[in-house]
Computed example of a mutant assay.
Amino acid sequence: MSERPDILTRYQAYRTRRFLENDAKTRHWLPNWRTQHRRRILVVAVLAADLTFVVVSISTLFFSWAAIVWIPAAVIFIPIWTALQTVSGRHSDAPTGALDEWEVQQRNEARSIGLTVTQGLVLVAAFALIFLSTTFPDLPRLAYAGGGWTLAALMIGISTPAIILAWITPDPEPEDIEYFDQQ
């Protein structure tokens, strides 16, 4: 009887294949933004958008109209986030089979930090909700604001691995650029 790979092995092979196909399509996009300096500009822009989410979510506790600011903040965040992911090669999302050992180690460390950031910020949001709901039980927008705080915490945590990897990854070697240009 032949040994068929289990479903997780097949799924990882599928993910690796899809990642490599998408990488082949996008590796030439935004070539001037692939330097470390330009990636850092995108990182600062993503951090500013993340901070905007925090400010907006806190503001919703006091002003009901502040919730509408989520829409333009998200509209600004999405293309900046997409550009950052594109120019950094989506290494924070890459399956293990698409990366070398050093890249896997870097990715895993960045993901670990991202998880810690997510847990810490969501914990702060939960404690704020607990404290405010017991101290000021009649705050009319507390539940909505708490949802915004949690969503902002998740957005920051989700973007943290890509931010770290985009910030620390050095510029590609010239021979790597030539290799990709020939492909």
Rank of each mutant, 00 (worst) to 15 (best):
G89S: 11
R90C: 00
R90Y: 08
R90V: 00
R90Q: 01
R90L: 00
H91C: 00
H91F: 03
H91W: 00
H91D: 02
S92E: 08
S92A: 15
D93C: 07
D93K: 07
D93N: 14
D93G: 12
A94Q: 04
T96R: 14
T96P: 03
A98I: 07
L99H: 01
L99M: 14
D100K: 09
E101H: 10
E101N: 11
E101I: 11
W102Y: 04
W102I: 01
E103H: 13
E103N: 12
E103W: 11
E103K: 13
Q105D: 12
Q105I: 11
Q106G: 01
Q106M: 13
R107W: 03
R107I: 03
R107N: 09
R107H: 08
E109T: 12
A110Q: 05
A110G: 10
R111M: 05
R111L: 07
S112W: 10
I113C: 08
G114Q: 09
G114W: 08
L115I: 14
L115G: 11
L115Q: 11
T116R: 15
T116G: 13
V117G: 13
T118P: 09
G120W: 10
L121N: 04
L121P: 04
V122C: 08
V122K: 06
V122I: 14
A125Y: 12
F127L: 15
F127Q: 06
I130S: 07
I130Y: 07
F131K: 01
L132T: 03
L132E: 01
L132S: 05
S133M: 03
S133P: 00
T135F: 10
T135L: 14
F136P: 00
F136H: 08
F136Q: 02
P137I: 12
P137Q: 11
D138T: 10
L139W: 11
L139G: 08
R141L: 13
L142T: 01
A143S: 15
A143E: 15
A145W: 14
A145Y: 12
G147W: 07
G148S: 09
G148H: 06
T150W: 04
L151G: 09
A153E: 04
G157S: 06
I158F: 09
I158N: 06
S159A: 13
P161R: 00
P161Y: 04
P161F: 04
A162V: 08
A162T: 14
A162E: 14
A162P: 00
I163P: 02
I163C: 02
I163M: 08
